[in-house]
Design a binder for these strands. Structure first.
Length: 466
RNA sequence: GGCGGGGUGGCCGAGUGGUUAGGCAAGGGUCUGCAAAACCCUGUACACCGGUUCAAUUCCGGUCCCCGCCUCCA
C-alpha cells in the first residue's frame, strides 16, 4: 500500500508529489554543516528534515539516494581584521590545529550528534575541498556561456543574464534594487550590485587557496553545492533541502549557477525548514543561545526526545525551544517505550481498527510530513480501547521506521533485576502479605532510591527502571 | 527600504466559518493499606479594533507587537 509522498515546493509554493525524474530512485541533496565549529540543535532540525524526507519516501516504498555536503571551506573573509583569512583558518589558529584537523574534528562531532538524534547516515557526505575541479569546470562553462565574467582574478556571475533570477526567494532584480540597503558598500568590480562571486582571488594572507585559470583563489559561496549536487546526483534530481536562510541568496544563486551552466532545470522540489528559536530569537552563535545535542544529554534528556519535540511542529514553521517542552517530550518517549515493553507484538495480520490507524498515520506523513498529526495518531492508537495490544505494538514498531524514536528499546533490552533487587522485592512482598506496611514502604523507598519504579500488581511487587 | 513568516488555554504547539487537536504539566476520580502504574473526568484558549455573516479564533480592512532573509549562517 503506497501513499503518494507530497512536499511543499518553495519554488512553486505548492504541494507536489515526489516523482523520481529517472523513474527509479528519488535523489535528495541536503545542505549540510560548515565544519569549523560544533553544530547546534537548530542546525540539527534542518538536518533531520532531510532524514525525515528519506524515511517518509522509503516508508512508502521508494528507493532513495540522499547526500549531504560537508562545507570544509570557510568562504568568508574575516572582515574584522581584513586579513583575508576565512573561518576555517581562524578556527585553525584558535585551536592550534590544521584546517584539515579542524574539519575532521567537527565533521566527526557532527556525525556523532546526528546519530544521537536518530538521523540515519546519508549515502554520501561529499567534501567541498574535494570538488574544486568540478567547481572550476562549472565556472568555466558559465564564462563561456556569457553568464560570468572575470575581474582581476575574481569571477562574478552576471545576474542580468539569468531571467529567472529571484524566482525562488521573490528577490527579483527590480525588487533587490528597490530595497537596496544603503549601508552596504557596492563592490566596484561588479557590473551590477546584485552580481555574486563564483571564484575569489586569494589575498596575500590567504592560506586555503587553489590554483585556477584565474590565478590562485578560492570558491565563492554557492558554487560548491552546484558542483557536488550535479556530480553525485546528476543534472536532474528530485529534492533539495536546507534551512529557510538558505533560500536567499544561497539557493537563489545556486539555481542561477546550475541552470545557467546546464541550460535546464536541475532540482524539482525545493524544501526549506523553519528555524528553531530560543528565547524569541533564532538560535545562532551570535545570539549566544545555542545548545548542542550533547547539552541535552547532559541534562538527562534522551536526545531522541528532541526528535519527538520537533515532530510537534510542522517543519516549515518556526519552533520555540524550551526545556519544559523538551522534558514533556522526554517523558512521553520514555512512557511510550515502557508501554511497548508491556505488549507482546502481534503475529500475523492486523485488524480493521489498526488498519484505520495505519492509514491515518501514513497519509499524515506522506502529506507534506505532517508529523504533528502523525504523532497524534500514534497517541490515539496507544490509548485506543478497541485495538489489541499486540497490534498496537506491531504498528508502532513499523511506524518507528519513520519516527526513529527507538520505541522498541525497552522491549528489546529486557531489563533484569539484580539479586539484591529480587531479594528486596521478595522481602517486601512477604512484609506486605503480613500487613507490615511500614516495612513494605521502607523497602519501596529503598527501591525507588535505586532509580526504580515500584508498582503493586495482583502478582505482587513489580519494579522496572524509571 | 525590499522579500517572507508569526501572535492559540500553565508550557510546546495542531487546526477550523458553527461540533474534543495532541503531548506534557495541573486539579478531581476509579483502583490501592498508602502510593505508583493504568484508566476516566476537568479547564471553557485563539493579540487589539472595526466589518462581512444567522454564526469568526478561522474571511476582509486597520492597529500593535514579534521573528527570519536581504552579509557567513540550518
Amino acid at each position: 500500500m503506497l501513499c503518494d509522498v507530497r512536499l511543499f515546493n518553495s519554488l512553486t509554493r505548492e504541494i507536489e508529489e515526489v516523482v523520481p525524474v529517472d523513474g527509479k530512485t528519488v535523489k535528495i541533496y541536503s545542505c549540510g554543516p560548515t565544519v569549523y565549529r560544533y553544530i547546534h540543535i537548530g542546525n540539527m532540525r534542518s538536518f533531520m528534515l532531510g532524514d525525515l524526507i528519506r524515511r517518509a519516501l522509503r516508508f512508502e516504498g521508494h528507493d532513495v539516494r540522499w547526500i549531504m555536503n560537508i562545507t570544509d571551506v570557510g568562504h568568508m573573509t574575516d572582515e574584522l581584521t581584513d586579513t583575508g583569512r576565512d573561518k576555517m583558518e581562524l578556527a585553525e589558529s584558535d585551536e592550534g590545529l590544521s584546517a584539515a584537523e579542524i574539519a575532521d574534528k567537527y565533521t566527526k562531532a557532527f556525525l556523532e550528534d546526528s546519530d544521537l538524534v536518530g538521523i540515519e547516515r546519508a549515502d554520501l557526505y561529499p567534501l567541498a575541498t574535494e570538488h574544486i575541479p568540478e567547481m572550476i569546470a562549472i565556472i568555466d562553462t558559465l564564462i563561456e556561456k556569457g553568464h560570468a565574467y572575470e575581474v582581476e582574478g575574481t569571477v562574478y556571475y552576471d545576474v542580468t543574464t539569468f531571467p529567472g533570477y529571484g524566482k525562488l526567494s521573490g528577490n527579483t532584480l527590480d525588487r533587490l534594487r528597490a530595497g537596496h540597503r544603503q549601508e552596504l558598500a557596492v563592490d566596484p568590480s561588479k557590473r551590477h550590485p546584485e552580481d555574486f562571486a563564483l571564484w575569489k582571488v586569494a589575498g596575500p594572507h590567504r592560506a586555503l587557496k587553489w590554483p585556477s585559470p584565474w590565478g590562485d583563489g578560492y570558491p565563492g559561496w554557492h558554487i560548491e553545492c552546484s558542483a557536488m549536487s550535479m556530480k553525485h546526483l546528476g543534472e536532474r534530481f528530485d529534492v533539495h533541502t536546507g534551512g529557510n536562510d538558505n533560500k536567499f541568496p544561497h539557493h537563489e544563486d545556486e539555481i542561477a549557477q546550475s541552470e545557467g551552466a546546464v541550460g535546464h532545470r536541475v532540482t524539482s522540489i525545493w524544501v526549506h525548514g523553519g528555524f528553531l528559536q530560543m528565547g524569541g530569537q533564532k538560535m545562532a552563535k551570535s545570539a549566544q543561545n545555542i545548545k548542542r545535542v550533547t547539552d541535552l544529554a547532559e541534562q538527562g534528556v534522551d536526545p531522541l526526545a528532541y526528535r519527538l519535540l520537533c515532530f510537534g511542529t510542522r517543519y516549515r514553521s518556526e519552533m520555540d525551544f524550551s526545556w519544559e517542552a523538551l522534558e514533556a517530550a522526554d517523558s512521553r518517549v520514555k512512557q511510550l517505550r515502557k508501554r511497548m515493553a508491556d505488549w507482546a507484538p502481534a503475529a500475523g495480520s492486523i485488524g480493521a481498527g489498526a488498519k484505520g490507524f495505519d492509514r491515518r498515520f501514513r497519509s499524515a506523513v506522506a502529506g507534506d510530513l505532517d508529523m504533528p498529526t502523525a504523532v497524534k495518531v500514534a497517541n490515539e492508537l496507544v490509548s485506543a480501547p478497541d485495538v489489541p495490544d499486540g497490534e498496537k505494538y506491531a504498528l508502532l514498531a513499523t511506524w518507528d521506521q519513520v519516527l526513529g524514536l527507538d520505541l522498541e528499546r525497552d522491549a528489546r533490552e529486557r531489563w533484569e533485576p539484580t539479586d539484591e533487587i529480587t531479594a528486596l522485592v521478595a522481602e517486601r512482598d512477604t512484609a506486605r502479605a503480613a500487613r507490615d506496611f511500614a516495612k513494605g514502604d521502607e523497602i519501596r523507598d529503598r527501591l525507588q532510591a535505586m532509580g526504580l519504579e515500584v508498582m503493586d500488581t495482583p502478582e505482587g511487587t513489580r519494579v522496572r527502571p524509571r
